[in-house]
């Protein structure tokens, strides 16, 4: 039997005393937070002024101007082109990339680490930065946008495809290996079919993500509707800008609805 004293000694404390790192971390956070507020010049005057400015933006934006509707729709079409072409190639290239990066399908640890690093690089560099880099490479316009989307999707799908492949049960894969099948046959016969529903899900998320990226890519000159939006804004044609924003909104919502329907069907 334990005596009362032993019980109280062994009882866990209600709250563990935070470590020195916790205090240090909190201090650094607080310093950056306060310094941020000061540096950005956030004052109540400027907040009031900002609200007033927003008001006048909307006042000037209404009613939306549909005079250049035709060319706006054309620019939107270009964005859709960027999304469709970029995402398709991105998903396509993600398959081999993910298989090379997964520890249960990669032919060699060196190859696996190299592809993992590549995927991490694709993912960590923001899409706008990729767009700027590709504009230098191939010039302004949708081609740079497509390249940026491809790389962005490879960073996204490459990672999620490979995570799914690594989670697969080893049993069916071993069963096919045991028949004497080659590595490629085993992958085609068991890895791809087993991971397929998840691949579809990740790909649909990639499509939604690409649409938002593709809209913004135009702001740096990589083609599509963003170019139009940038122009209208800099020319203070807010009513035209509103038309563009509404078109973007309608399109993005439409695609997200469609994608969630497909996802429900598949999973």
């Amino acid at each position: 039997m334990l005596n009362q004293n032993e019980l109280s000694v062994n009882m866990p404390a209600r709250l563990k005393k935070p470590s020195l790192w916790f205090w240090l971390g909190s201090l650094v956070f607080l310093i950056f937070f306060l310094q941020g507020i000061v540096a950005a010049g956030i004052t109540s005057d400027r907040v009031m002024q900002g609200i007033f400015n927003l008001g006048s933006f909307f006042a000037r934006a209404f009613p939306p101007d549909i005079e250049r509707f035709g060319s706006i729709v054309q620019a939107m079409l270009e964005t859709i082109n960027i999304v469709v072409v970029g995402t398709s190639f991105g998903i396509l290239f993600s398959f081999p990339l993910a298989l090379l990066a997964s520890n249960n399908t990669s032919p060699h640890p060196i190859i696996r680490n190299a592809t993992r690093t590549l995927i991490a690089l694709f993912r960590t560099v923001p899409d706008l930065v990729w767009a700027l880099i590709f504009i230098i490479a191939v010039g302004l316009g949708p081609f740079a946008g497509i390249l940026a989307i491809i790389v962005d999707v490879m960073g996204f799908c490459g990672r999620f495809f490979s995570e799914r492949v690594e989670e697969l049960k080893p049993g069916p894969i071993e069963a096919l290996r045991a028949t004497g099948a080659s590595r490629v046959s085993v992958i085609l016969g068991s890895v791809i079919p087993a991971a397929f529903p998840s691949f579809v899900g990740s790909s649909l998320f990639a499509v939604e993500k690409s649409i938002r990226s593709a809209v913004v890519l135009g702001l740096v000159g990589a083609g599509g509707i963003g170019v139009e939006l940038n122009t209208s804004m800099t020319l203070f044609k807010y009513d035209e800008a509103l038309t563009i924003i509404l078109i973007i909104l309608a399109f993005v919502i439409g695609v997200e609805q469609a994608s969630s329907r497909i996802r429900k069907k598949f999973i």
Partner: peptide, 14 residues
């Protein structure tokens, strides 16, 4: 897929 190793035409014959 039992045929996967046997066939010399590879995956497609299975």
């Amino acid at each position: 897929f039992g045929n996967l190793g046997q066939s010399n035409k590879g995956f497609w014959s299975s």
